[in-house]
């Protein structure tokens, strides 16, 4: 079966699942060859909210994030067990096409990676390959406005995407992602290559985007998580270097009154 906009209301058909759920990981395990990178992740991501994934390096945040849009499929050795439910449908089901999943669940990467094309084409390309039939100029403008980039680039749409600054490039990547009208946008440390001002702009942008999109973000920056995220999930590694979910909850609760000692240690440790 395929995932389509039409099937969205059917999400509530799954019993016991709140209609506000955008996506849900169930007993998720990811292996790289024989190595189990993460185990038994159960995570319920709420709709039109920002969920942050935090934790020490190598605990599998990126792995989990990439599991949400089957990006791990591109790693030849990667293998996924468990389920990711998207509108009630397990995206790892044999009948589901990973390409469609990624169309619905877009991604923004750690390092800005615009295509070596013009700014206009960077946006238009994704729309075109997904069969967009509408007014392209309009879509480009709308997407660039959505990514708060329009005013800066409206006079140089024909220039290469590489001609932009790092922060602008990252916003271009966000514009590119929202142009295909996904439900969820995954962001893997989207600000790690940016200066504080650019970072703030992206954070503002994320808040604006929650009006229409669900965002899952991986970050190393506690303050950033505290600033932007509605919910935060904290991951750790065990002795075998396998990552697992320690605690998950509303952000201010997790930061002010963590339920778990390890969470508290991590947060306070970081904050000195």
């Amino acid at each position: 079966m395929s995932i389509s906009v039409a099937t969205r209301p059917a999400a509530s058909a799954v019993p016991g699942q709140a209609p506000t759920n955008a996506i849900e990981a169930k007993d998720l395990r990811v292996f790289y060859g024989d190595f189990m990178a993460v185990r038994d992740i159960n995570l319920n991501v709420e709709r039109r909210k920002i969920t942050a994934l935090i934790g020490p390096s190598g605990c599998g945040k990126s792995t989990v994030l990439r599991a949400f849009n089957r990006m791990n499929d591109l790693v030849p050795t990667a293998r996924t067990e468990g389920e990711i439910l998207f509108h009630g449908q397990n995206i790892y089901d044999r009948s589901v096409d990973a390409v469609e999943v990624r169309r619905r669940i877009g991604m923004v990467f750690q390092k800005p990676n615009p295509f070596p094309k013009s700014i206009y084409e960077n946006i238009a390309w994704g729309a075109r390959i997904n069969g967009y039939k509408g007014n392209m100029d309009q879509l480009v403008e709308e997407s660039l406005r959505g990514a708060a980039l329009w005013d800066e680039v409206k006079d140089k749409l024909k220039q290469s995407g590489y001609s932009l600054s790092g922060g602008q490039q990252q916003r271009l990547c966000i514009a590119r992602a929202i142009a295909v009208k996904p439900d969820i946008i995954l962001m893997d440390e989207p600000c790690s290559a940016l200066d504080p001002i650019a970072t703030l702009r992206i954070e503002d942008l994320m808040r604006e985007l929650t009006a229409q999109y669900t965002i899952i973000i991986v970050t190393h920056n506690m303050q950033q998580a505290a600033r932007v995220a509605d919910y935060t999930a904290f991951f750790m590694v065990d002795d075998t270097r396998t990552g697992y979910l320690v605690e998950y909850g509303p952000t201010n609760q997790l930061f002010t009154a963590p339920q778990d000692r390890r969470t508290e240690d991590y947060i306070t440790g970081r904050f000195g």
């Binding site: 169309r103 990467f109 615009p114 390959i129 590119r176 295909v180």
Partner: peptide
């Protein structure tokens, strides 16, 4: 990164 950017858009 270029491939991922493309795949990430549903290509």
């Amino acid at each position: 990164a270029m491939r991922e950017g493309s795949y990430g858009l549903g290509a």
